[in-house]
Nucleic acid binder design. Structure first.
Lengths: 227, 227
DNA sequence: GTCATCATGTAAGCCGTTACATGATTGC
DNA sequence: GCAATCATGTAACGGCTTACATGATGAC
């Protein structure tokens, strides 16, 4: 999972370890605060396996500097950061900037398309994959959404079985189960709308993929299943 | 966390390992499918530390058999199970039935009242504690709810910062962040209603705690904060 | 000059998993 | 007789955390 996140980030822009951590924290929100004790070894592993190359970058940031391919930095801080990096005297801290290789891109796509783990970290795993869904083939993307939907459907069934069987839960437990059920239903509706808009997109001729209207919001009645 | 779950279950009824697993799976839904490789060592540890005692139970289930103190088994299966156990020829499988000790109860209450871990497994940890909230002192219970609420408020703020800063997320990521935000808001409302009904309960003279109307549903306008 | 932040790493440990090993009982 | 389920465990490994160790740079 961490490898996937790292490769995903690096597939858009070069970064050094410390910044990867920040991105993971600030941008996606998954991997809230990945620890260095986990991140740096992961980077070393990826380098050893040839998925990324790390270049010791000391002195002013070179020409191949971290210029986001996608311009993902948030307003103020982005301005600040690039102003600083733009001056002749770039940061002099020794840091190791990682770049993804062709091998790395292949690995990334494999990881992204791989079967999701069941049971453990389903939500996080799906969130991560969805965040990088634009790198998937349309068909694989739809598969991702539908597999996730199936997972949730099964969970909903389990929750309802629980609610039906556990007639004498105490009030806290009952409320917990109820809330879980509602949340799962909400998740399913969301996925239904994602799936619908994905199908629509695939039906119509290929338009621009990025920076269009937010996908799957508030409309697109979830007609797949009535909850 | 696993220790807490085990002690929580055992604080209501005796169980053997295999059944603890089933309970954890079917009843709460947290700890979807705890593995035996995790469960049995945990039980051994708990026994070694004196929190539980395990008695090798071979032959027909003795008088001190697993008769739920709280009657938590679901309808049909409960009937089936107790009918079987009720016949003269009880199961003859060798199994080790665990019973919680006074020490165990103390440990349980400590674990339950302990500061929740931040960052990792917040949701599961809270769910577990809430499921056993009836064992907490009213004040501690309120504390649990309010700490969880604070967590969610912070998360909501972070999500919104992300949404504001990440103006050029692609449509999938944007939808993901939006959905997360909505879910968090829903969670907060839920907690608000739990908190309110908890305060009400504590204001009025002590009534029966169990098997009353489900706590915190659909009414109880979350007036604590407007989302 | 000192404190916060940036920056990279290693070592030990926790908490869970899968895979392996074993065997009794029940249902068909 | 054979498969499914019940029942208990061990061993190896995975992935992540905390704590430790180190040092440069910038802000005040």
């Amino acid at each position: 999972m961490l490898d996937l996140a790292i490769l995903g980030l690096l597939s858009e822009c070069e970064f050094h370890g410390y910044e990867i951590r920040k991105r993971l924290r600030d941008e996606l929100g998954l991997f809230a605060n990945i620890s260095f004790g986990s991140l740096y070894p992961a980077l070393s592993r990826l380098e050893l396996s040839g998925a990324v190359v790390g270049t010791e970058s000391i002195g002013a940031t070179p020409a191949s500097a971290p210029i986001p391919l996608t311009g993902s930095l948030g307003g103020e801080r982005a301005a600040l950061r690039s102003r600083r990096a733009g001056t002749t005297r770039g940061t002099k801290r020794s840091r190791k900037v990682y770049r993804i290789t062709d091998t790395g891109r292949r690995v990334f796509e494999e990881l992204l398309a791989a079967e999701e783990p069941v049971g453990t970290d389903e939500a996080r795993s799906f969130g991560l994959r969805l965040a990088f869904a634009r790198h998937l083939a349309p068909q694989a993307r739809l598969g991702l959404l539908e597999r996730r939907r199936d997972q949730l459907i099964r969970r909903l069934a389990a929750d309802r079985a629980r609610a039906a069987a556990g007639g004498d839960f105490d009030s806290y437990t009952r409320s917990l189960v109820e809330h879980r059920t509602e949340t799962t239903q909400h998740d399913i509706s969301w996925l239904d709308s994602l799936i619908e808009s994905e199908k629509q997109k695939q039906a119509t001729p290929p338009t621009d993929n990025r920076s269009t209207r937010t996908v799957g919001s508030r409309s697109a009645a979830a007609k797949g299943t009535e909850l």
